[in-house]
């Protein structure tokens, strides 16, 4: 059976194709301001990647901030449920899963079957989401993809006073004027954001093993800060973490079918 999972996120729309619970294709397109076309294009890309035709698809499952726009979806799966399922799929021993995307951060406590026990969400404040690092990259005049690797070059820890991304921008400019090295500023930025994600995780409890999904999982600097803030050695990150919720959505539907 072929099931498609589509996660229409604030920044990217991700589609995965599952054949009998195995990933056979993926597609990712910038969501931009036209969700409908992003959904269509990412589905097209994933089907092409899987080498199958849209006629071969049995069912479609949707999730993410723009899930209402996925017209062809047979079901729409709540993001929390999707990420719990995905974590259980990638790491069966997972008990805590955090999903950090462009405009939200979530933490979910799950049981051995990938069922949700408790969760915490932030989708109201950019300071606890990928958007924070993006805004800081602009202030630092660095490319977004350079931000994470820079962290690993720094061994200083500079505290950031500002919480709000808007106020933090001025703080970063102040640090630049004080001739602080870019790598040290980048580390301060990632540490500050990781501490906010960790305080959200602590609300539901830190239970091993910990899995991280979402696009920010591709940022090695953030993962480094996250481990430091959590005071643990290992955070499990599936290959292509950005597709986590899409995989989870597809798995939830597969289970119900």
């Amino acid at each position: 059976m072929i099931i498609v999972g589509i996660d229409c996120g604030a920044k990217n729309t991700k589609t995965v194709v599952l054949r009998d619970n195995k990933i056979i294709g993926k597609g990712m397109i910038l969501t931009g301001f036209d969700q409908t076309s992003a959904i269509r294009e990412s589905l097209h890309a994933a089907l092409k990647d899987a080498g199958i035709d849209v006629k071969d698809v049995d069912k479609i499952s949707g999730t993410g901030a723009g899930m209402e726009e996925i017209r062809d979806a047979d079901v729409r799966v709540n993001e929390v449920k999707a990420m719990a399922k995905a974590a259980n799929f990638f790491v069966p021993s997972a008990r805590t899963v955090t999903d950090v995307g462009a405009e939200m951060g979530r933490a979910v406590k799950i049981d051995e079957n990938g069922k949700v026990i408790d969760f915490a969400i932030n989708e109201k404040c950019a300071a606890g989401a990928g958007a924070f690092i993006e805004a800081m990259a602009r202030a630092l005049e660095a490319k977004l993809e350079e931000m994470g690797p820079m962290v690993l070059k720094s061994d200083k820890s500079i505290p950031m006073n500002a919480q709000c991304a808007i106020f933090a921008e001025s703080e970063v400019v102040g640090l630049i004027h004080a001739k602080t090295a870019k790598a040290d500023i980048s580390k301060a930025i990632h540490d500050a954001m990781a501490s906010r994600i960790v305080s959200m995780i602590r609300r539901i409890g830190v239970n091993k093993d910990i899995v991280m999904i979402g696009g920010v999982g591709l940022n090695p600097g953030f993962v480094d800060s996250l481990k430091r803030e959590l005071e643990i050695d290992k955070v499990y990150i599936p290959p292509d973490p950005a597709f986590g919720a899409a995989v989870g959505a597809a798995l939830v539907l597969a289970e119900e079918t």
């Binding site: 405009e103 958007a131 805004a135 808007i166």
Partner: peptide, 9 residues
């Protein structure tokens, strides 16, 4: 109304 960054987007 909660976040200037999101309001901007």
């Amino acid at each position: 109304s909660t976040c200037v960054v999101y309001a901007k987007t």
